[in-house]
Design a protein around this nucleic acid. Structure first.
Length: 261
DNA sequence: ATGGCAAGCGAAGCTTGA
Protein backbone atom coordinates (compact mmCIF):
# COMPACT_ATOMS: atom_id res chain seq x y z
CA UNK A 1 0.00 0.00 0.00
CA UNK A 2 1.39 3.37 -1.02
CA UNK A 3 0.60 6.59 0.82
CA UNK A 4 1.86 9.84 -0.68
CA UNK A 5 1.93 13.49 0.30
CA UNK A 6 2.08 16.31 -2.23
CA UNK A 7 1.93 20.06 -1.67
CA UNK A 8 0.37 20.99 -5.02
CA UNK A 9 0.57 24.80 -4.63
CA UNK A 10 -2.87 25.43 -6.10
CA UNK A 11 -5.01 22.41 -7.00
CA UNK A 12 -6.66 24.05 -9.98
CA UNK A 13 -3.52 25.45 -11.56
CA UNK A 14 -1.81 22.13 -10.84
CA UNK A 15 -4.59 19.81 -11.98
CA UNK A 16 -2.95 18.45 -15.17
CA UNK A 17 0.30 17.75 -13.31
CA UNK A 18 -1.59 16.15 -10.42
CA UNK A 19 -3.67 13.88 -12.67
CA UNK A 20 -0.59 12.80 -14.61
CA UNK A 21 1.24 11.91 -11.41
CA UNK A 22 -1.76 9.99 -10.03
CA UNK A 23 -2.10 8.05 -13.27
CA UNK A 24 1.59 7.22 -13.39
CA UNK A 25 2.21 6.24 -9.78
CA UNK A 26 -1.27 5.11 -8.61
CA UNK A 27 -0.82 5.84 -4.90
CA UNK A 28 -3.51 4.23 -2.76
CA UNK A 29 -3.76 7.39 -0.68
CA UNK A 30 -2.67 10.91 -1.61
CA UNK A 31 -2.54 13.71 0.95
CA UNK A 32 -2.61 17.11 -0.72
CA UNK A 33 -1.78 20.52 0.69
CA UNK A 34 -2.04 24.14 -0.42
CA UNK A 35 -5.20 23.65 -2.44
CA UNK A 36 -5.56 27.44 -2.56
CA UNK A 37 -9.21 26.98 -3.43
CA UNK A 38 -12.49 27.53 -1.59
CA UNK A 39 -14.54 24.44 -0.73
CA UNK A 40 -16.76 24.76 -3.80
CA UNK A 41 -13.88 25.13 -6.26
CA UNK A 42 -12.26 21.77 -5.56
CA UNK A 43 -12.16 19.79 -8.85
CA UNK A 44 -14.10 16.84 -7.49
CA UNK A 45 -15.34 15.54 -10.85
CA UNK A 46 -11.87 15.37 -12.35
CA UNK A 47 -10.43 13.67 -9.28
CA UNK A 48 -13.23 11.09 -9.25
CA UNK A 49 -12.82 10.50 -12.98
CA UNK A 50 -9.21 9.62 -12.22
CA UNK A 51 -10.42 6.91 -9.83
CA UNK A 52 -9.97 8.72 -6.53
CA UNK A 53 -12.48 9.51 -3.80
CA UNK A 54 -11.64 12.79 -2.09
CA UNK A 55 -12.40 14.60 1.10
CA UNK A 56 -11.12 18.12 1.41
CA UNK A 57 -11.09 21.23 3.55
CA UNK A 58 -10.83 24.27 1.34
CA UNK A 59 -10.21 27.93 2.01
CA UNK A 60 -10.29 30.98 -0.20
CA UNK A 61 -6.87 31.95 -1.56
CA UNK A 62 -4.68 30.08 0.90
CA UNK A 63 -4.05 26.75 2.61
CA UNK A 64 -6.48 23.88 2.07
CA UNK A 65 -5.88 20.14 2.51
CA UNK A 66 -7.32 16.97 0.97
CA UNK A 67 -7.13 13.20 1.30
CA UNK A 68 -7.66 11.11 -1.82
CA UNK A 69 -8.21 7.36 -1.68
CA UNK A 70 -8.10 5.17 -4.75
CA UNK A 71 -11.37 3.40 -5.32
CA UNK A 72 -12.77 3.82 -1.82
CA UNK A 73 -14.30 6.64 0.19
CA UNK A 74 -12.10 7.96 2.99
CA UNK A 75 -13.99 7.95 6.29
CA UNK A 76 -13.48 11.43 7.65
CA UNK A 77 -12.58 11.54 11.34
CA UNK A 78 -11.49 15.10 11.96
CA UNK A 79 -11.58 18.41 10.11
CA UNK A 80 -9.36 21.12 11.49
CA UNK A 81 -6.73 20.63 14.17
CA UNK A 82 -8.32 20.55 17.66
CA UNK A 83 -7.27 22.97 20.35
CA UNK A 84 -8.24 26.41 19.04
CA UNK A 85 -11.83 27.10 17.94
CA UNK A 86 -10.75 30.53 16.67
CA UNK A 87 -8.29 29.08 14.15
CA UNK A 88 -9.92 29.62 10.75
CA UNK A 89 -7.12 28.23 8.62
CA UNK A 90 -7.69 24.98 6.72
CA UNK A 91 -4.58 23.02 7.54
CA UNK A 92 -5.62 19.63 8.91
CA UNK A 93 -7.86 16.72 8.02
CA UNK A 94 -8.01 13.10 9.17
CA UNK A 95 -9.59 10.01 7.71
CA UNK A 96 -9.61 6.25 8.04
CA UNK A 97 -8.64 4.49 4.83
CA UNK A 98 -8.33 0.75 4.57
CA UNK A 99 -7.69 0.31 8.27
CA UNK A 100 -5.08 3.06 8.53
CA UNK A 101 -5.66 6.40 10.19
CA UNK A 102 -4.34 9.04 7.81
CA UNK A 103 -3.75 12.61 8.99
CA UNK A 104 -2.93 15.25 6.38
CA UNK A 105 -1.44 18.56 7.50
CA UNK A 106 -0.09 21.83 6.22
CA UNK A 107 1.88 23.31 9.07
CA UNK A 108 2.21 27.11 9.13
CA UNK A 109 5.27 28.59 7.47
CA UNK A 110 5.92 30.99 10.35
CA UNK A 111 7.99 33.65 8.62
CA UNK A 112 9.00 36.25 9.46
CA UNK A 113 10.50 35.06 12.72
CA UNK A 114 10.25 36.21 15.37
CA UNK A 115 6.74 37.64 15.14
CA UNK A 116 3.06 36.76 15.31
CA UNK A 117 3.26 34.31 12.41
CA UNK A 118 6.07 32.43 14.11
CA UNK A 119 4.09 32.40 17.36
CA UNK A 120 1.17 30.91 15.46
CA UNK A 121 3.43 28.24 14.00
CA UNK A 122 4.70 27.20 17.42
CA UNK A 123 1.20 27.18 18.91
CA UNK A 124 -0.01 25.08 15.98
CA UNK A 125 2.90 22.73 16.52
CA UNK A 126 1.92 22.32 20.17
CA UNK A 127 -1.68 21.54 19.20
CA UNK A 128 -0.35 18.97 16.74
CA UNK A 129 1.79 17.42 19.45
CA UNK A 130 -1.29 16.97 21.65
CA UNK A 131 -3.33 15.46 18.82
CA UNK A 132 -0.46 13.18 17.80
CA UNK A 133 -0.17 11.99 21.39
CA UNK A 134 -3.83 11.04 21.37
CA UNK A 135 -3.41 9.16 18.10
CA UNK A 136 -0.31 7.27 19.14
CA UNK A 137 -1.94 6.33 22.45
CA UNK A 138 -4.69 4.45 20.60
CA UNK A 139 -2.11 1.97 19.34
CA UNK A 140 -3.66 2.25 15.89
CA UNK A 141 -1.72 2.26 12.64
CA UNK A 142 -1.36 5.98 11.90
CA UNK A 143 0.47 8.06 9.34
CA UNK A 144 0.72 11.81 9.74
CA UNK A 145 1.71 13.15 6.35
CA UNK A 146 2.15 16.58 4.94
CA UNK A 147 4.10 19.77 4.56
CA UNK A 148 5.58 20.33 8.02
CA UNK A 149 7.55 23.42 7.00
CA UNK A 150 10.46 22.07 9.04
CA UNK A 151 13.90 20.95 7.98
CA UNK A 152 14.65 18.53 10.83
CA UNK A 153 18.46 18.58 10.56
CA UNK A 154 21.32 20.26 8.70
CA UNK A 155 21.31 17.36 6.27
CA UNK A 156 17.88 18.53 5.13
CA UNK A 157 18.98 21.98 3.90
CA UNK A 158 21.21 22.77 0.94
CA UNK A 159 22.91 25.59 2.85
CA UNK A 160 22.14 25.36 6.57
CA UNK A 161 24.03 28.52 7.57
CA UNK A 162 21.68 30.62 5.45
CA UNK A 163 18.58 29.25 7.14
CA UNK A 164 19.46 29.51 10.82
CA UNK A 165 17.09 32.42 11.48
CA UNK A 166 14.36 31.17 9.19
CA UNK A 167 11.09 29.96 10.69
CA UNK A 168 11.57 26.60 8.95
CA UNK A 169 14.91 25.94 10.59
CA UNK A 170 15.08 27.90 13.81
CA UNK A 171 15.99 25.93 16.94
CA UNK A 172 12.45 26.27 18.34
CA UNK A 173 11.03 24.74 15.16
CA UNK A 174 13.45 21.86 15.03
CA UNK A 175 12.92 21.22 18.73
CA UNK A 176 9.15 21.08 18.21
CA UNK A 177 9.59 18.52 15.45
CA UNK A 178 11.94 16.49 17.65
CA UNK A 179 9.43 16.55 20.52
CA UNK A 180 6.91 15.07 18.11
CA UNK A 181 9.31 12.31 17.06
CA UNK A 182 10.08 11.60 20.71
CA UNK A 183 6.50 10.43 21.16
CA UNK A 184 7.53 7.42 19.11
CA UNK A 185 6.95 8.44 15.49
CA UNK A 186 9.17 7.23 12.67
CA UNK A 187 10.28 9.70 10.01
CA UNK A 188 9.84 7.30 7.09
CA UNK A 189 11.91 9.02 4.43
CA UNK A 190 14.91 9.56 6.70
CA UNK A 191 14.68 6.02 8.04
CA UNK A 192 14.91 4.57 4.55
CA UNK A 193 17.63 7.01 3.47
CA UNK A 194 19.91 7.55 6.44
CA UNK A 195 22.68 10.06 5.85
CA UNK A 196 21.47 10.81 2.35
CA UNK A 197 20.81 14.27 0.92
CA UNK A 198 17.20 14.01 -0.16
CA UNK A 199 14.89 16.97 -0.72
CA UNK A 200 11.18 17.44 -1.26
CA UNK A 201 11.09 21.15 -2.11
CA UNK A 202 13.01 23.44 -4.45
CA UNK A 203 11.95 27.07 -4.68
CA UNK A 204 11.14 28.71 -7.98
CA UNK A 205 14.01 31.17 -7.75
CA UNK A 206 17.39 31.05 -9.43
CA UNK A 207 17.05 27.58 -10.83
CA UNK A 208 16.95 26.02 -7.37
CA UNK A 209 15.88 22.67 -8.81
CA UNK A 210 18.63 22.66 -11.42
CA UNK A 211 21.19 23.43 -8.71
CA UNK A 212 19.57 20.99 -6.29
CA UNK A 213 19.27 23.83 -3.78
CA UNK A 214 16.47 22.08 -1.95
CA UNK A 215 14.86 21.46 1.40
CA UNK A 216 13.36 18.36 3.02
CA UNK A 217 10.15 19.67 4.55
CA UNK A 218 7.47 17.16 3.52
CA UNK A 219 7.35 14.26 5.93
CA UNK A 220 5.45 11.05 6.61
CA UNK A 221 5.49 10.02 10.27
CA UNK A 222 4.53 6.45 11.11
CA UNK A 223 3.10 5.29 14.43
CA UNK A 224 4.76 2.32 16.20
CA UNK A 225 2.05 0.02 14.88
CA UNK A 226 2.92 0.97 11.30
CA UNK A 227 6.68 1.51 11.38
CA UNK A 228 7.50 -2.24 11.15
CA UNK A 229 5.49 -2.33 7.92
CA UNK A 230 7.66 0.25 6.18
CA UNK A 231 9.06 -1.21 2.95
CA UNK A 232 10.17 1.84 0.99
CA UNK A 233 10.01 5.62 0.97
CA UNK A 234 11.06 8.09 -1.68
CA UNK A 235 10.46 11.32 -3.54
CA UNK A 236 9.03 11.53 -7.06
CA UNK A 237 11.70 14.07 -7.84
CA UNK A 238 11.17 14.24 -11.59
CA UNK A 239 7.70 15.73 -11.08
CA UNK A 240 9.40 18.92 -9.90
CA UNK A 241 11.24 19.20 -13.23
CA UNK A 242 8.16 19.17 -15.45
CA UNK A 243 6.08 21.94 -17.02
CA UNK A 244 4.24 24.19 -14.57
CA UNK A 245 5.38 22.26 -11.52
CA UNK A 246 4.59 22.76 -7.88
CA UNK A 247 7.63 23.85 -5.90
CA UNK A 248 7.23 20.59 -3.91
CA UNK A 249 7.68 17.05 -5.20
CA UNK A 250 5.43 14.14 -4.16
CA UNK A 251 6.84 12.06 -1.30
CA UNK A 252 5.62 8.59 -0.43
CA UNK A 253 5.87 5.43 1.64
CA UNK A 254 5.25 1.86 0.59
CA UNK A 255 3.81 -0.22 3.43
CA UNK A 256 3.48 -3.96 3.84
CA UNK A 257 -0.27 -3.65 4.21
CA UNK A 258 -3.14 -5.21 2.28
CA UNK A 259 -3.99 -3.20 -0.80
CA UNK A 260 -7.36 -1.58 -1.31
CA UNK A 261 -10.07 -3.65 -2.95
C1' DA B 1 22.18 40.57 1.94
C1' DT B 2 18.90 40.74 -1.49
C1' DG B 3 15.85 39.29 -4.93
C1' DG B 4 14.59 36.10 -7.69
C1' DC B 5 9.41 33.12 -9.19
C1' DA B 6 4.54 31.47 -8.83
C1' DA B 7 -0.28 31.78 -7.48
C1' DG B 8 -4.76 34.08 -5.91
C1' DC B 9 -7.56 37.91 -6.35
C1' DG B 10 -9.37 40.68 -9.57
C1' DA B 11 -8.38 43.34 -13.20
C1' DA B 12 -2.78 46.50 -11.14
C1' DG B 13 -0.26 45.48 -7.83
C1' DC B 14 -0.34 43.60 -3.39
C1' DT B 15 0.04 39.38 -0.34
C1' DT B 16 1.86 34.99 0.64
C1' DG B 17 4.87 31.36 0.26
C1' DA B 18 9.67 28.99 2.02
Amino acid sequence: MRIATFNVNGINSRLPALLRWLEETQPDVACLQELKAPQEKFPEMEIRAAGYCPIWHGQKSWNGVAILARGTEPQELQRGLPGDPDDEQSRYIEAAVNGILVACLYLPNGNPAPGPKFDYKLRWFERLRLRAQELIATGAPVVIAGDYNVMPTELDVYKPERWLDDALFRPETRAAYQRLLDQGWTDALRTMHPGEVIYTFWDYFRDAYGRNAGLRIDHLLLSPALAPKLKAADVDRDVRGREKPSDHAPTWVELDWPKLG
